[in-house]
Design a protein around this nucleic acid. Structure first.
Length: 1042
RNA sequence: GCGGCUGUGGCGUAAUUGGUAGCCGCGCUAGACUUAGGAUCUAGUGACGCAAGUCGUGGGGGUUCGAGUCCCUUCAGCCGCACCA
């Protein structure tokens, strides 16, 4: 009787479905085990042979755990929101929901053929309103909470509001994007809207202005992990930097918990390192670098002055009495200076300059005055007297336009930014005496305030230039660029003046967007100093900074006043103490991780449960959830550039307020899906406490490394937030994580002789001038081309001629990405049809270590298939099923127990490739022993069942069992059967093995030594020399040292 | 530039974790059987050598009685991060 895998696999897949074999319920009598696959995005191309690799591994593990008596949760679903379906919709008008539905159906069909043990009753789709209701719900909670930095957890925003009402910002410990200070009195004076605006800076889900990755082609913003080297990961479109108002998630507040949590996780070191780097904790200090004394503080004293110039008088006629629509004050005293006109709401000064300065002193004084005013946060608009006299009305209009374009009073800048100090973050406070200049990021708010008039133009040119650069150019362009601002800061210890430069090697988004440059000990500062010829002061004894900087954190300090003679480590501590004492700053921990941008200007995503009233966002009530995606006429932005949802009719809340038009990004739906599987049909909450406390978290998570910094960070963040809310009971969502390697394609080539229709076989191609052409791997077997199939494959080759070697056409091959254009895509369905699911499963595992990337090479699959047929043959004699009830002998038991031991160990260590090889060894041995004894075969079947569930079910039932093999018990390994009476020692001389000798297992060392030395075979190697030493390692080796 | 990983037959890989390198499979060679095939079975298969034997885990060096395994160095390939002060 043949091994008819097609029939067997269909039969058992139907049986499992009919009998709900894989349905799982919370059963407190059994220990739980939760095995999760990263759910797929159902793309139009369907699954290729690489996708199931991780699913097969997790399926083996699930089935193994089940056989060991665990209650195993092993669910599957779809990450169904996303760009491809929407792009397809834009092109075809087909609604993404339909495309997605079709793709899911295809995926399901393909998955079912492979015979997975998923509990499909728990299937979920992120695009299903019943599911995304809970994504929206979680967002609302994030909006309603802030992060308490002292308690290190989320707390209701109402609590913070109460604090502000009672005590202002005094003793507030809250993560925020805009540090500010106010008293309770000031808070209570504010309007509701002002209060809401302040609270927005504390919410975990907040609206904020930020420079974002904007893709014009995609018409949306992207998260940092969705962008690589200036291009979008999906689609490869260019990405530019743009300032926009967006929703954010305050992931940065959780930085420390995200970092600490990594320690306890059973993840690969490389993945943990990637996350640590992404979080980027660095300890250091914020130092306040003083600017020269500024007397442009906002102590404005109205002081009428009647000495008007002619031009001033002319302008006054135009601007007085709110003729412009706002008030300009005339002859205002600010600090020591009187300015001609000033608008106090927006902090704009209108300066009138003489056409020509009489002396250079006069000019200098003018510049100093302007700088001081700018330091105070004012904007200055200058006109010369003759300009005003020529066209006072035109100038009036210019003033009007300018003042209106300026945002409302951003003047009372917080004390840290742009008061009289520049705050900088450094991890090397020990190098403070080596600071010879300062550098600001071009985007820094200080640039405007500090740039002196005569540097104005150069600075503006520079900024325009850096803005033009794409992210890619900025990275790849290693040239040193920068411009002097004209301003100076004062060294906090030496009080030396230090020039302030502007350069794009300083990032606006990290630290304070300003640095103190220590060229001797930082390579970037060094390059900059060399390029612009700035001083370099070495600070470490014996270091040579003539060619390059000395970046290592080691050595003894010199040229550093009170730090001299200390080691770097000591100096860091000492410097911070001194900075503290002198109140020049404070120690601080900085994180690289940024808040996640959470808006996408897209259709196919979760709508935000947000409406706007009076320009401020408010959340919908829970009863209004889910807020379903509305129908739209087109899936494109509106003519005015608003997201597609703005096209929806009646896109308003129940009370008639306009709803948010952007949607959530891809990672929203995948952030808490593992919790939903625990309780997928609950319509009262995301997950019930009972279900959550039973399943807790994922014991084993299998998926690709591409999610290392995206999904796996956001998901951990999201879970920690839900822990704070008391929804999730485990601080970490995924205890153990295994990354399966990528399956690459293995392409085949034929070699066409140039300008002909002739093809030459691989090893003869060097004799001709040829072009390699990709050929469909499905018409090539063991690199031999099926010539007839090739002729039919493409009409162009119908009359092709071939130059063969040994009567065959041999193709070349290469490892490439698996893609349609390379004709190297192998479909799992085809493999299943041809060899069966069990063969596919075993072969995918046999290909190599799970975590290793490898090309799909169908060449070895016959070997695995033959193994299954030999397994089948063990149970059959002359075409009929026949097993013996005889007692097994010791040899047979040894073979079996070797297998049990090996397979148990291998599965625990995810070494599935070696398991397959162990099965082959076992079946080969049993075949040569002609063993068909029930006792041996049935236990072997249980071991094989996780790997090849269909054939084992069939044979199991033929053995007379009426329940599924997965209700059996994993066999126990018995060491007794593996005990050997003798051991064969390898006898080596000077480390080289020469012959072997068998000893009984309990022979003692001296006896072995004696026997070896007296053995006739040894004489040849000893050859008259005296053995210096004989090393006998029991059950290992004997080595004679000569 | 920084961080991580990997280098073993013609190919995919294995090696009880410092103890006989090459298990298992593919391919290849020879043979058996045969309504001739991409079927099945048997034997062989790291290289050199008639052989005894010698050489062999990217290269070089070291530790050790003994190294694919540990250390140093160097080369090659892959992946991640990329001016993070």
């Amino acid at each position: 009787m043949d091994y008819n895998f097609g029939e067997i696999e269909q039969k058992w897949q139907a049986y499992w479905a009919d009998n709900q074999t894989y349905k799982v319920t919370e059963d407190s009598a059994k220990p739980k085990y939760y095995v999760l696959d990263m759910f797929p995005y159902p793309s139009g191309a369907g699954l290729h042979v690489g996708h199931p690799l991780g699913y097969i591994a997790s399926d083996i593990y699930s089935r193994y755990k089940r056989l060991q008596g665990f209650n195993v949760l092993h669910p599957m679903g779809y990450d169904a929101f996303g760009l491809p379906a929407e792009q397809y919709a834009i092109q075809t008008g087909q609604h993404p929901a339909i495309t997605t539905q079709d793709n899911i159906a295809r995926y399901r069909e393909q998955l079912d053929k492979i015979g997975f043990s998923y509990d499909w009753d728990r299937e979920l789709r992120t695009s299903d309103p019943d599911y995304y209701k809970w994504t929206q719900w979680a967002f609302i909670q994030m909006f309603k909470n802030y992060y308490d930095t002292q308690l290190q957890r989320a707390k209701p925003i109402a609590r913070l509001e109460g604090h502000f009402r009672m005590r202002g910002t005094e003793n507030v410990h809250a993560a925020t994007s805009e540090p500010m200070e106010f008293t309770a009195e000031e808070w209570n004076m504010k309007s509701d809207k002002e209060q809401q605006e302040i609270l927005m800076n504390y919410r975990i889900a907040y609206l904020g202005d930020s420079i974002v990755n904007w893709s014009p082609q995609l018409g949306t913003v992207l998260a940092n992990d969705e962008v690589s080297e200036g291009f979008s990961i999906r689609g490869g479109y260019p990405v530019e930097q743009k300032k926009m108002r967006q929703w954010f998630l305050r992931v940065s507040a959780y930085a420390e918990r995200l970092l600490e949590g990594l320690d306890e996780l059973d993840w690969s070191d490389s993945l943990k390192e990637t996350q640590r780097h992404w979080i980027g904790r660095s300890e250091g200090a914020v130092i306040h670098i003083p600017l020269p004394e500024s007397d442009a503080k906002r102590e404005v004293i109205d002081e009428e002055d009647s000495s008007y110039s002619e031009a001033g008088q002319a302008l006054w006629e135009i601007v007085k009495n709110k003729q412009l629509g706002f008030k300009l004050k005339r002859d205002y005293k600010i600090g020591d200076n009187t300015v001609p006109f000033v608008n106090l709401d927006k902090g704009v000064i209108i300066a009138i300059e003489t056409d020509a300065f009489l002396t250079s002193e006069e000019k200098d004084e003018h510049i100093v005055t302007q700088s001081k005013l700018k330091l105070g946060g004012f904007r200055i608009l200058s006109f010369t007297q003759s300009e005003i006299l020529a066209d006072p009305i035109g100038i009036g209009q210019q003033i009007k336009d300018y003042v209106e374009s300026v945002p409302a009073a951003d003047i009372p800048v917080s004390e840290e930014i742009g008061g009289d100090v520049i705050p900088v973050f450094t991890t090397r406070p020990d190098t403070i005496f080596g600071v010879t200049f300062m550098v600001l990021a071009p985007e820094s708010e200080l640039v405007d305030q500090l740039t002196t008039p005569e540097q104005q133009e150069a600075v503006q040119n520079y900024i325009a230039q850096t803005k033009k650069k794409t992210e890619l150019e900025r990275i790849s362009d290693q040239k040193v660029t920068g411009v002097f601002s004209g301003a100076y800061a004062t060294h906090p210890f030496t009080e030396e003046p230090m020039p302030i430069w502007i350069s794009d090697y300083v990032l606006a988004g990290y630290g304070t967007g300003a640095i103190m440059a220590v060229p001797a000990h930082d390579s970037r500062d060094y390059a900059f100093a060399k390029h612009f010829n700035l001083p370099i002061i070495p600070l470490i004894e014996g270091c040579d900074v003539s060619e390059e900087s000395f970046d290592a954190k080691e050595g003894i300090m010199i040229n550093s006043d009170f730090l001299n003679g200390l080691t770097v480590e000591e100096a860091i501590k000492r410097a911070i103490e001194e900075i503290d004492k002198k109140e020049l700053g404070y120690s601080q921990v900085n994180y690289r991780i940024r808040d996640a941008i959470f808006s996408r200007q897209r259709y196919w995503g979760e709508p935000f449960p947000i409406y706007y009233k009076d320009g401020m966002p408010y959340t919908l009530s829970e009863s209004e959830l889910p807020l379903q995606l509305p129908p739209v006429d087109k899936f494109l932005p509106t003519e005015s550039g608003e997201p597609p949802l703005a096209r929806a009719e009646n896109w308003v809340s129940e009370d008639g307020y306009p709803l948010e038009t952007s949607t959530m990004p891809g990672f929203a739906g995948s952030s808490a899906y593992y919790l939903r599987y625990m309780d997928p049909n609950n319509n009262l909450m995301l997950v019930s406490q009972e279900a959550n406390h039973y399943w807790r978290n994922v014991d084993l998570y299998i998926g690709g490394t591409e999610h290392a910094t995206g999904h796996l960070v956001y998901s951990r963040f999201w879970n920690k937030f839900l822990v704070d809310l008391g929804i999730s009971c485990e601080e970490e969502p995924f205890k153990k994580l295994v990354n399966q390697g990528m399956i690459q394609g293995r392409s085949n080539f034929v070699y066409r002789i140039k300008n002909s229709n002739r093809f030459v076989s691989l090893n003869l191609k060097d004799q001709y001038d040829t072009t390699p052409i990709h050929v469909d791997v499905n018409i090539v077997h063991h690199d031999v081309l099926d010539i007839e199939a090739f002729k039919q494959w493409n009409p162009e080759y119908k009359n092709a001629e071939f130059i063969l070697e040994d009567g065959k056409y041999i193709c070349g091959w290469a490892v490439e990405k698996m893609s349609k254009s390379m004709f190297n895509v192998v479909n799992p369905d085809d493999i299943v049809d041809k060899y069966g699911a069990d063969t596919l499963r075993l072969y995918e595992m046999f290909l190599g270590p799970l975590e290793q990337s490898k090309p799909w090479d169908t060449n070895g699959i016959d070997g695995v298939h033959r193994f299954l047929r030999r397994t089948w043959a063990l149970f059959h004699t002359n075409d009929s099923f026949r097993v013996s009830d005889e007692e097994p002998n010791l040899t047979e038991l040894k073979t079996l127990h070797k297998l049990i031991q090996k397979i148990s160990y291998d599965i625990e260590h995810f070494s599935f490739n070696t398991s397959v090889s162990a099965f082959m060894i076992c079946v080969n041995e049993l075949t040569s022993l002609k063993c068909n004894k029930r006792a041996i075969l049935s236990e072997m079947l249980i071991c094989l069942a996780p790997f090849a569930p269909h054939i084992t079910e069939e044979l199991w039932s033929r053995l007379g069992n009426d329940k599924t093999i997965f209700d059996a018990e994993w066999p126990l390994f018995n060491e007794e059967y593996l005990k050997e009476d003798t051991f064969t020692y390898a006898i080596s001389f000077n480390g080289k093995v020469r012959y072997t000798l068998e000893f009984s297992a309990d022979t003692d060392k001296t006896e072995i030594e004696e026997t070896v030395l007296n053995h006739p075979d040894s004489q040849k190697w000893i050859a008259g020399k005296t053995p210096k030493k004989v090393i006998v390692v029991p059950k290992k080796i004997v080595n004679v040292v000569l």
